[in-house]
Amino acid sequence: MLADIINPYFLQILSFILINILLAISVYVPLSSGQLSLGSAGFMGVGAYTSALLTIHFDIPLIIGILAGACVAGILGIIVGIPSLRLSGVYLAIATLGLGEVIRVIFVNWESLTKGSIGLTGIPQMGREILNFAKGFGFDPAMIGLKSNQFVYLVIVLILLLLVIATIWFVVRQQNSRVGRSLSSIQMDEKAAESMGINITYYKVLSFTQGAFLAGLAGALFAHVMGYISPSDFSYHRAVEILIFTVFGGSEVILGAVFGATFLTLVPEVLRFISDYRYIIYGIVLIILMAVRPQGIFDIHLLNRLKGLKRSKGGVR
């Protein structure tokens, strides 16, 4: 029974959804301090290439590779974040978009390391590495009634799910802390926040770096789920896609980012049966939403209404 439900195709989609949720959050976090960053695709690429190259060439454990990928992206975030603090709004968006393109062009041209546009093949796949590791202890997926490939994808999804929950937990906790309140006061009015004694330089760099770190983490995970990456995976197109996740779902609340990534990853898959038209529908959905609900599906008012509803009807949702 269990084995029938666990289907590598669904698990694969689910793992892309979870990675996209991380990416959407990586835009949401800088946005919560009023910084619109379009560099996510670039940071994602840095994370992916760092982790992939380290694990391919130096044979280091995946977990260290992934952490290194996220950290390198985070450090790049600090380096880029400090000078770009002078910019705000649309200027920051353009600067970060430029950064993403510069990173992609570096991947294309640094051929001795990145193999240029052909991309990196043979990146260790997370699930399979774990399967081999587990087999070393005499574990066989057949013992719990699963085929090897089902086990592989199930493990990937579980790891990603844990990471996503941990990330959401962290971001929500941070929002309700002193740091979060500082960030939202900066978003409301930078001058006022500064005059209240908030160190805006510190907090802006902090949120920008967190975004870069999360994007790098998502990129590293992407590399080890796909097993193959090329610069075209981290193009301008990806940056816009990530931004749409957050804007579509609602950029005021974290639930919006999660919902946007989930919904917009699923739509093209669910609509596969009308393959030629699916991206037309995707586009129409976006246009309608932006016309009717420019703040995105979820905003604070809607959440409050939902909460009110739950209280009065006893948790019906």
Partner: peptide, 10 residues
Amino acid sequence: ADQALSAAQK
């Protein structure tokens, strides 16, 4: 590439 992999997986 990711869409191609999903499609092939299916």
